[in-house]
């Protein structure tokens, strides 16, 4: 599998990172280098092996379904790039 300029453009869009056309070629080269090196994993026999989901065997804990936190509008908005009257202000999302 070789990553093309078009693949980089697509991945950049999926990653929500603006990439100028001039950088696509370089990035494709870098990604191919890394992915080519990663390809050695194909040598490993993983037939019948379960994918690892947790390093220590443990049961996911459950908590009571109750409200434990709240009334923190000012704290939640404290780092907002734009805010107004208790709300985040964001660019128009619906035309």
């Amino acid at each position: 599998m070789s990553v093309t300029k078009e693949d980089v453009r697509k991945v950049a869009r999926l990653s929500r990172i603006a990439v100028e056309d001039g950088r696509l070629e370089t990035l494709a080269g870098e990604l191919n280098g890394i992915l080519g090196w990663i390809d050695q994993l194909n040598e490993v026999d993983v037939e019948g092996v379960e994918p690892m989901t947790s390093v220590v065997e443990t049961v996911m804990p459950m908590r009571a379904d109750v409200v434990t936190d709240g009334d923190k509008v000012d704290e939640i908005l404290a780092n907002a790039p734009k805010r107004d009257d208790g709300f985040f202000v964001v660019p128009k999302a619906v035309e």
Partner: peptide
């Protein structure tokens, strides 16, 4: 949107992409 640096773009997606770039 909620914290960190925002770079305004022409639309919402462009704002995400420019902010992250």
């Amino acid at each position: 949107m909620r914290y960190g640096a925002r770079v305004a773009g022409d639309n919402l997606n462009a704002t995400y992409e420019e902010s992250r770039a």
